[in-house]
Amino acid sequence: MPRCEGGSSKDLLRCSACSMAFYCSRECQKMHWRKDHKSACSFYAVNRDHAIKISGNPRAWTDLVTWTQYHHASLVNASLACYLRRVAVGKAGPDTVTMLHLEMRYLNDRKLPPHRQFELCEARFVSPGDKKWAGMCGIATCYRPAAVAMGKREMPHTYWGTGGYLLTVRFRKEPVDIGEDYVPFWKHFAIDQERAHARPACRNPLDQLEENIREGRKMRFCCGRIEGAPTCCCGGWTHETVSVISRAPADRG
Rank of each mutant, 00 (worst) to 15 (best):
R14A: 10
C18H: 01
A21H: 11
Y23K: 06
C24G: 15
R26T: 08
C28M: 01
M31A: 12
D36V: 04
K38L: 08
Y44W: 08
Y44D: 10
A45S: 13
V46A: 14
N47L: 09
R48V: 08
D49E: 11
D49W: 00
H50A: 13
I52N: 11
S55H: 06
N57S: 15
P58W: 09
R59W: 08
A60R: 02
D63S: 15
T68L: 03
A73R: 02
S74A: 15
N77G: 14
N77S: 15
A78N: 02
L80M: 12
Y83P: 06
Y83E: 15
L84T: 13
L84W: 04
R86T: 05
V89R: 15
G90R: 13
K91D: 14
G93R: 13
P94L: 03
D95T: 10
T98Q: 07
T98N: 15
M99N: 14
M99A: 15
L102R: 06
M104G: 02
R105P: 01
R110I: 02
K111Y: 01
L112H: 07
P114W: 03
R116E: 11
Q117A: 12
F118D: 03
C121W: 02
F125L: 14
F125K: 01
F125P: 00
D130I: 06
K132S: 07
K132D: 08
A134R: 04
A134K: 05
G138M: 03
A140L: 01
C142K: 04
R144W: 13
P145D: 08
P145T: 04
A147N: 10
V148F: 01
V148T: 12
V148D: 14
M150Y: 10
M150K: 15
R153I: 07
E154S: 06
M155E: 10
P156H: 01
G163W: 02
G164T: 02
Y165W: 05
L167E: 04
V169Q: 05
R170G: 00
K173F: 03
E174S: 12
D177M: 07
I178G: 03
E180W: 03
V183H: 09
V183K: 04
P184T: 11
F189D: 02
F189W: 06
F189H: 11
Q193D: 15
Q193E: 14
R195M: 08
R195Y: 03
H197D: 13
A198T: 11
A198L: 15
N204I: 00
D207L: 09
Q208I: 14
Q208E: 11
E211G: 00
R214N: 07
R214Y: 10
E215K: 10
G224C: 03
R225C: 11
I226Q: 05
A229T: 09
C233T: 14
G235Q: 05
V244E: 07
I245G: 07
R247E: 13
R247M: 11
R252E: 09
R252L: 14
